[in-house]
Design a protein around this nucleic acid. Sequence first.
RNA 1: UCCCCAGUAGCUCAGUUGGCAGAGCAGAUGGCUGUUAACCAUCGGGUCCGCGGUUCGAGUCCGUGCUGGGGAGCCA
Length: 431
Amino acid sequence: MNTITIDTIGQYEGETVTLSGWLVHKRSSGKVRFLVMRDGTGIAQVTLVKSEMDEKHFERYDSLTLESSIMVTGVVKKDDRAPGGYEILASQLNILQIAEEYPIAPKEHGVGFLLDHRHLWLRSSKQHAVLRIRHTVIQAARRFFDDRGFILLDAPIMTPVACEGTTTLFKTDYFEEQTAYLSQSGQLYMEAGAMAFRKVYCCGPTFRAEKSKTRRHLTEFWMIEPEVAFADLPDIMELTESLIVTIVKEVLSSNREELRTLGRDVSKLEVIESPFESLSYDRAVRVLRNEGVPFEWGKDFGGSDETLISGRFEKPVFIHRYPASSKPFYMKNDPEKSGVVLCMDLLAPEGYGEIVGGSAREEDPEILCQKLNDAGLSPETFSWYLDLRKYGSVPHAGFGMGIERTVAWICGIPHVRETIPFPRLLQRLYP
RNA sequence: UCCCCAGUAGCUCAGUUGGCAGAGCAGAUGGCUGUUAACCAUCGGGUCCGCGGUUCGAGUCCGUGCUGGGGAGCCA
């Protein structure tokens, strides 16, 4: 007798095995009964035939409720009628626990109800598929940087000041008389890391206390943020492009089954190849105006603007060189055009919008000081950051990729709240 | 912060002109030797979001508060 998991069941045809898991569904036709179980690796159907097993075990079926934990022993049989192609003809059914009445039915539920039961919702097949793809995305991204000689350098989550200075921060007490802020980006620390290790990245949660209520926002979300010394804007655009292509290819090869569960149109992902199109902000503004949008130069693009621009391409598209007024203080001025900074955003297709934002960083201490002042931030609180420009300042650049938005796009699901195990939203801190 | 929508059984929802509170699913009980969200029969299940008002009478109309959802702004 082998204790196995469902993902490997095909290797055991004709053998007696034991599965452990949870009851997903049961159907009875009298003396032939079916139960569908999941074990975390897959789903399998178990058949109980009264005449072919111990009656005591057969009758245990009656007391089973949804999500009861069970162990089943039986022979693996190939059967096209079973979901997955294999089923277990049971000889034993052992119960670990009879579950209380399970709140999530295989029928429809409202979003609020499901989010209240997120700790249980994770068990359903669609959520399983999304979170497995999230795993692949993070693994592929980290492997991408590891393979290129980047050092993983974890950024702090509690910080003394704003990193970007503009967005709202979560505040918390830090012992007596001090305040800590939850990090909204690891970038400034990655810049310090790049001066020490040349190529670094971090991957972790970031926090923004913005009262945003859209399908693209969470108050706690994950970013992967590389930073590279002696790099300029084209360098990190190239890096971004290979990263995205690598991630999509990895999901296509590792998660076919999950993409099928989600009903994702895979052809939309199969076209994601180098090179990506690239538009300057100026050109993007002209595109919008040609479409009849009365867009004012100097403003940032709204959601509908991004959708309109990215809708013209079937691959992700870069928009670069935005007006300095709409961007944070650390971005480097474009030497060829005043009022513009050397930055880029990557917009995902199908209306998903911005998934990456990055820039060359200002390396001149005096200009950086001026930019801090212009942003209404005091250079004193950023003195450690200004040190990086005093002791061997070099050109450097980096970007941040939003994990949840990337996963939402790859999965083709409308809202980022399903792409993280326990979403934190404007009105939701539970469970 | 602003705009729009919703709140009725455990869940998803219907409820007509203001006139006895409803369905499907889930649950319980029984039946069925190949079910796929099985099927058939029977049964139990309600603070109609809270408060105030109009009315002979309010789930329904009015006011107000709360909660949730969608969108805008801002952002990844």
